[in-house]
Amino acid sequence: MDDDPATRGMSISYLASRQCLSLGVTHADAARHLKRGPFSLVVVDARATDDDGAEMLRSIRAQSEVPVILVVGQHYTVLDRIVSLELGADDVLCAPLNLRELLARVRATLRRHEAGRRDAAPGFQGGYRFDGWVLDQRSRTLTNPAGRTVDVTKTEYALLLALLGTPGRPLARAQLMRATRAHEDIHDRTIDAQVMRLRRKIEADPSSPKLIRTGRGAGYILDAWVEAIF
Rank of each mutant, 00 (worst) to 15 (best):
M177D: 12
D45Y: 03
R173T: 14
V92P: 11
V72K: 04
V43K: 01
S207T: 08
V66L: 08
E114R: 07
D4Y: 02
R18W: 04
L79I: 00
A48N: 06
T143Y: 11
R117G: 10
R200A: 14
P96R: 07
G37C: 12
R216K: 11
E86R: 12
L163H: 07
W133R: 06
G123L: 14
T77G: 10
Q137G: 12
G147W: 00
N98F: 04
R173F: 02
R173N: 15
L102W: 04
R197P: 00
R118L: 15
I12H: 05
F124H: 07
R200S: 15
L79A: 13
A46G: 07
Q194L: 02
V92I: 06
C94N: 04
L103H: 03
L198A: 05
T141M: 10
R8S: 15
A179L: 08
R36H: 11
R199T: 06
L99A: 11
D50N: 08
G217D: 07
D90N: 15
R61G: 14
Y157N: 11
D2T: 00
A89V: 00
R200W: 01
A16K: 03
W133C: 12
V78E: 15
L97P: 01
A146W: 04
R117K: 10
R107N: 07
L15K: 10
L171D: 13
I186V: 15
R140S: 13
M196Y: 09
M56E: 12
P206A: 13
L41K: 03
A62C: 08
L34V: 06
G147R: 00
H27N: 12
A62L: 07
V150T: 06
A62K: 04
D3K: 06
D91S: 14
D192T: 08
R173I: 08
A62T: 00
G168N: 03
V92E: 07
S40R: 05
L171W: 02
L99Q: 14
K154H: 03
A31I: 02
A54Y: 01
V150S: 12
L85Q: 11
G88C: 09
W133P: 05
L57S: 10
L176F: 09
H183A: 15
M196R: 14
R36A: 15
I212H: 13
S207L: 11
V106Y: 02
L41M: 09
Q74T: 09
R118Y: 02
R173G: 13
L23N: 04
D80A: 14
V72T: 13
